[in-house]
């Protein structure tokens, strides 16, 4: 193997990497798994575009065609759905790994790109959820766009910019569709490439100096195992659990229990107790801001790189965990309602 000329995919990897950092329980492969899910989303998404119709009359009907009539359409849609849900999880866990093991030390630009990618992942998931155009979508969209209106000064302009009219209708669906399948997806693809390029440029994933090295073949083997495991879990979930699809969106129908998509349930819980601008706009921005600033403020030490729960970053780790646990607690409260 090793005397063969490396092919393009091998070229994406360094010739050798530190052996300690290749062990699965250092990174759990979460960045790579997120990338794999992103690729799955791109491929399944493009295939869905051949049938999906982004109009209020056509959306729900065409999703039913994908799900019930097109051969293997159910599997395609379920895989797209589950890859999207799993990716929210793996991206957040990847972020947790980076904070807790001091991975962002002396590579703060890449940390910022990562925070932007977390934001994009959530927005892509939300815009994708809107495309379902069922009853849940109608209310989440109503609440979400009214939240934008609550921003002082530019709220109404932003609102019209997002939905292309006074109220949610055909222009809004087309806009969310375009953001989802092209505009945001392109930005996410570009930032992902940059994110990975920065890892190589910064000398591979963060590591402790002077450890024994493993070679490219070993790395590839580990990655292929992680990939197969991820695809097995994704396919298993997609075969066993169907992606939800409620009755078609009707903005005049009374709904008993409108729920935000699960990754925004924590915001819905906050909206029950605080003003729309505070709970729905300021707090999420503040969370992203605090996350962005962690390596610039609370964890500036260059010591403790690649060490899980390193002493130098304790405060940053604590702040991160408090935010994470807070969001999870609010989400659970929303789920249990």
């Amino acid at each position: 193997m090793s005397n063969r000329r490396p092919n393009f995919f091998a070229h994406l990897h360094p010739p050798t990497i530190p052996a300690r950092e290749m062990r699965p329980f250092y990174t759990f492969g979460l960045g790579g798994i997120s990338l794999l899910l992103f690729l799955v989303l791109g491929i399944t998404g493009v295939i869905e575009m051949f049938i999906y119709v982004p109009t209020p009359e056509g959306a729900h009907e065409s999703i039913r065609q994908i799900t019930y009539l097109a051969p293997y359409g159910w599997l395609l849609r379920n895989m797209h759905f589950w890859a999207g849900q799993l990716m929210v999880g793996t991206v957040i866990l990847h972020m947790a790994r980076v904070v807790l093991s001091g991975g962002y030390k002396s590579r703060r630009l890449n940390w910022l790109i990562g925070v932007a990618l977390l934001f994009l992942t959530l927005v892509l998931d939300f815009t994708g959820f809107v495309l379902r155009w069922d009853q849940d979508t109608a209310w989440a969209l109503m609440v979400g766009t009214n939240l934008i209106k609550s921003v002082p000064g530019v709220g109404t302009v932003l609102h019209d910019f997002l939905i292309g009219g006074e109220s949610v209708g055909a222009p809004a669906l087309l806009r969310f569709y375009t953001w989802h399948v092209l505009a945001l997806a392109l930005v996410a693809a570009a930032l992902t490439s940059w994110h990975i390029f920065r890892v190589r440029r910064d000398g591979g994933i963060s590591h402790v100096a002077s450890t024994p090295r493993a070679n490219r073949e070993q790395l590839l083997r580990t990655e292929i195992i992680a990939m197969l495991l991820t695809l097995a879990i994704l396919t298993g979930l997609s075969v066993l659990v169907d992606a939800p699809l409620g009755p078609p969106a009707d903005p005049t129908a009374l709904v008993a229990e409108p729920k935000a998509p699960w990754f925004f349930l924590w915001i819905q819980e906050l909206l029950r107790i605080a003003s729309p601008f505070l709970a729905g706009v300021l707090v999420p921005i503040l969370v992203l801001l605090v996350l962005s600033l962690l390596p610039y403020t609370l964890d500036r030490s260059q010591e403790g790189v690649a060490v899980w729960f390193n002493k130098q970053g304790r405060i940053a780790q604590l702040v991160f965990l408090v935010i994470l646990v807070g969001c999870i607690a609010l989400t659970l409260r929303g789920v249990m309602r």
Binding site: V143, T252, L254, V255, A256, E257, P258, L271, R272, P276
Partner: peptide
């Protein structure tokens, strides 16, 4: 508040199911 449709309560009044 944020545009959901309120529902009538059995003993009078209305509740918004969203928040």
């Amino acid at each position: 508040h944020l545009g959901c449709l309120v529902e009538p309560l059995e003993d009078g009044g209305f509740m918004c199911p969203c928040h």
